[in-house]
Design a binder for these strands. Structure first.
Lengths: 243, 243
DNA sequence: CGAGGGGTTGACGCCGATCAAAGCTGGTGG
DNA sequence: CCACCAGCTTTGATCGGCGTCAACCCCTCG
């Protein structure tokens, strides 16, 4: 929908268009966290940082842009769009995860469409750079494995938690996921719009709305500020288990 | 349920309990396919082969046996068992795939319970052996990444195809998956029992039975021999798309 | 031959999809 | 500042799909 917007993130005078990963303050979370600083001296192609507004399409399925993205801030949804236009959200990813890793295994284009849910900051890393660094640094390869394993665990959780049970149970599970993985410093999380939630758990928008509205009435879910919400975790866990 | 049955596969006189991976005739499919023969001279711990009868439990979730398994023949289901006993099949895997890879990323025990669906032959590889080989052979690490990526793709397909649509559409999708990935030399596939199918797509056993029986009546699905079946792929694709 | 396990079929009631309409909210322009 | 509109959310009404319970069939095995 929205075209790609590339906005440089580091606005200070020393910003050159490179990411300065070796100085990155959240580097522990990122793709290169295992690498010694010296490794970056070998990098030829630049690693740029970008900010994307909500709704931006980071990449589309089957296109082949030759970039891996490491998420620094915000939420990204990976969407599968069927030939008939029906879209289903396959995964929701936050800071410290990487998307587009399928290109490293020689995939012919991305496997999903990636869309920014809220304000997203990310590092754009050329595939060639990763392959180059992997040559000399086995720990990067193992880190990639770990990221893949994490995503596999997420996918499995998705299948189990969001694909089973009544609509009420699934919505409860979804809110618990938002609370667990996407809470920000204030201890609250952004409540996705009903359409996105419906696309995640495979039920109708109206049904999601009913459940969420119900949770709000029961004070299981309450507004913190703006569209940030908090929840009663135990109540939701009860619902997710036995209805 | 069934206790682990370890049956040696190679019965010839030279069989010593090792897998002789370097001579394995289906080695191209297996975990070590990228490695030069010389690499196996470094291996200290043995790699054993086993055969398991249908229903055998290969390992249980949260146990920590320190073994990766590479599937040579047969189908393995990865099962998630909820605290309340409800089980859900998360993935169905066949020859050339590996299970238990989560141990390589330092997971504290297996993430699922693995159960043989039919006769299963597999190689049992100690985690320490993989780690040892990974040290000197980066291509093994990359092969592990590829296996993980394949499983991630499978999981995504599972979410999209088997978690969406009416019961009729899901069963059609499931049969298509069996046909595509688990057909044997005779061009037919084993039709799973209704309980397993229900656990895969998250619907009631009776509903699965109704749909399968219906497909049989419509000659979309027909017995080849024994419990091997063939299907009309196009008819099923039509059903999976629009009902 | 009877028992038992899996598969099939029927009856019924409820959950949730669908269609429709009415609040709510934020943005825009007069 | 208010009117208006577009998009999102909420709520209601209706109907069909599917979960549930139950009976029965078929095959295998003791």
């Amino acid at each position: 929908m929205t075209s790609e917007l590339a906005i440089t993130f580091c606005t200070d005078a020393t910003w050159t268009g490179r990411a300065h990963c070796e100085k990155c303050h959240i580097r522990k979370l990122m793709l290169f966290s295992e690498l010694p600083t010296s490794a970056f001296e070998e990098v030829l192609q630049p690693i740029d940082q970008y900010m994307y507004p909500p709704g931006s399409v980071l990449y589309e399925a089957h296109t082949h842009k030759q970039f891996i993205y490491s998420i620094r801030r915000g939420m990204v949804k990976l969407v599968h769009i069927a030939p008939d236009g029906v879209s289903r959200i396959v995964r929701l990813l936050g800071p410290g995860t990487a998307i587009g890793l399928e290109l490293l295994d020689g995939a012919d284009g991305y496997h999903h469409t990636a869309i920014a849910v809220n304000q997203v900051d990310l590092c754009k890393i050329p595939v060639s750079t990763i392959k180059q660094l992997e040559d000399g640094h086995k720990e990067l390869c193992m880190h990639v494995s770990k990221l893949l394993q994490d995503q596999l665990d997420l996918a499995d959780q998705w299948i189990v938690a969001l694909g089973t049970g009544t609509a009420r149970q699934r919505v409860a599970q979804l809110v618990l996921v938002l609370d667990e993985f996407f809470s920000e410093d204030n201890g609250a999380f952004i409540l996705l719009n009903r359409e996105d939630m419906a696309a995640m758990i495979g039920i109708a928008v109206e049904t999601v709305s009913r459940m969420i509205a119900d949770f709000k009435r029961q004070k299981i879910l309450y507004r913190f500020k703006e569209n940030y919400y908090q929840c009663n975790t135990e109540a939701l866990q009860d619902i997710s288990r036995q209805g």
